[in-house]
Every structure is written in structure tokens, then in C-alpha cells.
């Protein structure tokens, strides 16, 4: 992938953090967005875990892509990326289990599910299709992870407040979360065209 794009790093950060926020504009990673956004603390730690996984898998995916292109085996890209992400998640899981059992419990099934978080795979796939250089890949992954965390933490804040609200029966649970996500998504539309 030598062609590359000339997107500057600050543009990449801004773009993935706000304009094309993975959750609110590209609708990737909705599952953990709904699953672990019930508390601010859990949400921010989940965000850190996802940022880490994104960074590592992005760097590894960059290397793997070079190998695959050299071996003329691009068709293996998807499965290779998934293998990389799964092993990174295993690493994070072991680390969290050892250092913070409480957080491990709070994240529950959503921690191993980072493996199937389409936002993580999305980072690897998008950086390949955009042809980013290594530095651009890392910044792209960082911005995406930060954007994911931002959306998750904002949602967690709203949900904590909403715990006290008298939400009508038909909107309780996931329904209201999806509708809040919709409003948030509309609000993030305001950033359209930023930095370009």
C-alpha cells in the first residue's frame, strides 16, 4: 500500500472523533454502545480497552497487510484481521481479569465481545482500503477509539440521569437508548465538513 492518502494527522483525529464518529455517524460498534453504557465508569474503562485493542490490532493489521500483499494473498485479509483482533482481546481480557476483577465482572460478556465489535474490524478494514501509512493508521485507530469512548461516555451520562426518569413503558430499555442515540447522531451531524 504505497499510494496512500495525504490526510493530515490532525484531520484524521478530528474526522474519526467527531465528523465520522464510529458510533454516531458510521453506526459501528452499536452492540457495546448499548450494552456497557449504563455507568460512566464502566463505559470509560470499556473505552480504554477498545482504544487499546484498536491500536494494537491496527498496528498488527498494517504489518499483516504488507505480508499478505507481498504473498499475493489479499483474500486472507478478513480472516487474518479477525485472528489478530481476537488474540489482542484475549490479551486485554487476561490483563483486566488479573488487575481489576471488579471491572472484569462489570464488563461481563462485552469484554470478549470486543472481538466481534465491528468498530475494531472496521478500523483495520478502513485503514487498508484508505491506504494509510503506518503513522496514519495509528492516529486513525486512536481517533476511532477516542470517538467510540466519547460516544459511550456521553451515552452513559445520559443513561445515569435517565435512571430516575419516568420513561413510558413502550420506550423502556433498549428502545429509548436507540432513540437517544438517534438524537445524538443528529447533533453530531452539526460537525459535517469540519476540518476539510
Amino acid at each position: 500500500m504505497s499510494g496512500g492518502t495525504d490526510d493530515t494527522l490532525s484531520f484524521l483525529i478530528l474526522n474519526t472523533l467527531l465528523v465520522n464518529n464510529f458510533v454516531l455517524a458510521q453506526f459501528l460498534g452499536i452492540c457495546p454502545f448499548i450494552g456497557v453504557s449504563n455507568k460512566i465508569e464502566t463505559a470509560s474503562r470499556m473505552g480504554v480497552a477498545v482504544i487499546f485493542v484498536m491500536l494494537v490490532s491496527s498496528a498488527l493489521a498494517y504489518g499483516i497487510n504488507i505480508v499478505l500483499v507481498a504473498a499475493d494473498a489479499e483474500y486472507l485479509r478478513l480472516i487474518a484481521y479477525i485472528a489478530v483482533i481476537a488474540s489482542t482481546v484475549q490479551l486485554v481480557e487476561m490483563f483486566i481479569k488479573k488487575t481489576s476483577p471488579a471491572l472484569f465482572k462489570a464488563l461481563g460478556i462485552y469484554l470478549p465481545l470486543i472481538t466481534t465489535n465491528c468498530a475494531v474490524l472496521g478500523v483495520a478494514k478502513l485503514q487498508t482500503s484508505e491506504g494509510y501509512s503506518f503513522i496514519q493508521c495509528i492516529v486513525f485507530a486512536l481517533g476511532s477509539g477516542l470517538g467510540f469512548t466519547l460516544a459511550l461516555v456521553i451515552m452513559a451520562g445520559i443513561r445515569q440521569k435517565l435512571d430516575l426518569a419516568d420513561v413510558p413503558g413502550l420506550a423502556k430499555g433498549t428502545a429509548i437508548i436507540l432513540m437517544i442515540a438517534g438524537v445524538l447522531s443528529m447533533a453530531f451531524m452539526g460537525f459535517a465538513g469540519l476540518g476539510s
Binding site: I154, G157, Q160, K161, A187, G190, A192
Partner: peptide, 21 residues
């Protein structure tokens, strides 16, 4: 900096969103 001429509405909505935080 954005492509929209007016941002007040979005600014207030975004600030509303982070109000609980």
C-alpha cells in the same frame, strides 16, 4: 470551520448531551 452556515442548534444539543457528565 464546518460546512453548515449555522451551528447554534447543534452546539446546544451537544452541550445538552454532555450536561449529565
Amino acid at each position: 470551520k464546518g460546512s453548515l452556515p449555522e451551528g447554534v442548534m447543534y452546539a446546544i444539543l451537544l452541550a445538552n448531551a454532555v450536561t449529565p457528565l
